[in-house]
Simulated scan of single mutants.
Amino acid sequence: MREDSLTLFGFGGDDERALFEQVQTVSGVGPRLALAMLAVHDPAQLSSAIATGNVTALTKVPGIGKKGAERIVLELRDKVVPVGTGETKATPEVPAATTPGDSQVAEALVGLGWSAKQADDAVAKVAKLPEADSATTPVLLRLALRELGR
């Protein structure tokens, strides 16, 4: 969601959606490039290419050059899980959402256009605040938006 457009993305399965979100955590990869990656490769091929460091397969995607492909492999090699296992590896430096409110806030931030990593970072910072202990989801969302606005 941006000032000038509302964009809705649809996926054939949970694997595609999970990979779409995970690929966007790499700097320089936005929703359009992530969709292009899924258009060229199916989720199994894409996760395999990232996990094995197959830069050639990644450069077949329009908009990804050799350096971009190397950056994607470097940042995601240890985080990509084989498709179909139903699990994703969390980044070690970002704690997972601990309450249902935290995950709802993170999902809302992603829906508003921030990357999953930015949303998780903001939720983690907000969770450490003293006023977050007894806060409701809307209050947590407001605090996270304030954090992202800095």
Rank of each mutant, 00 (worst) to 15 (best):
Q22W: 02
M1V: 14
L35Y: 03
G53M: 01
R142V: 02
T59Q: 01
A18D: 12
E107S: 14
G68Y: 07
R77L: 07
V126N: 09
T52Q: 06
S47L: 03
A122K: 10
P92N: 04
T137W: 00
K125T: 14
V29I: 14
S47G: 10
D4A: 05
T52I: 03
R17G: 04
F11D: 01
L129I: 07
S5W: 14
E3A: 09
A18R: 08
V26L: 03
D120M: 15
G86K: 10
L129W: 04
T59Y: 01
R146I: 07
G63N: 01
V26I: 05
S47N: 03
E16P: 05
G101R: 04
P43G: 10
M1I: 14
V105G: 10
I50Q: 01
F9V: 08
S115Y: 12
D133F: 15
R32S: 08
Q104I: 01
F11L: 09
S48K: 08
D14I: 15
H41V: 03
A116P: 08
P82H: 11
A124T: 09
G28A: 04
P130T: 07
G53S: 00
A44Y: 15
R146S: 14
L143I: 02
A124P: 12
L129F: 11
A39E: 06
T99P: 05
D4T: 09
G111P: 11
S47T: 11
E16I: 06
V29H: 08
E70Q: 11
D102H: 15
A69N: 04
L141E: 05
E87P: 02
D120T: 15
G10K: 02
V29F: 13
G30H: 02
A124C: 10
L8D: 07
G12F: 15
G101K: 05
T99S: 11
P95E: 09
L148G: 13
T88C: 13
L129V: 10
L58A: 03
L38N: 00
V110N: 08
G111L: 14
Q22T: 13
Q24S: 04
L112T: 12
A122D: 08
E16K: 02
Q104D: 11
D4H: 13
E107F: 14
D14W: 10
A49K: 00
G30N: 00
S134M: 11
E3V: 06
E131F: 00
V126H: 11
E93L: 02
A34E: 05
P95V: 15
P43M: 06
V105S: 08
L35P: 01
Q118K: 14
I64R: 00
P62Q: 05
A90M: 08
G12M: 13
L74Q: 13
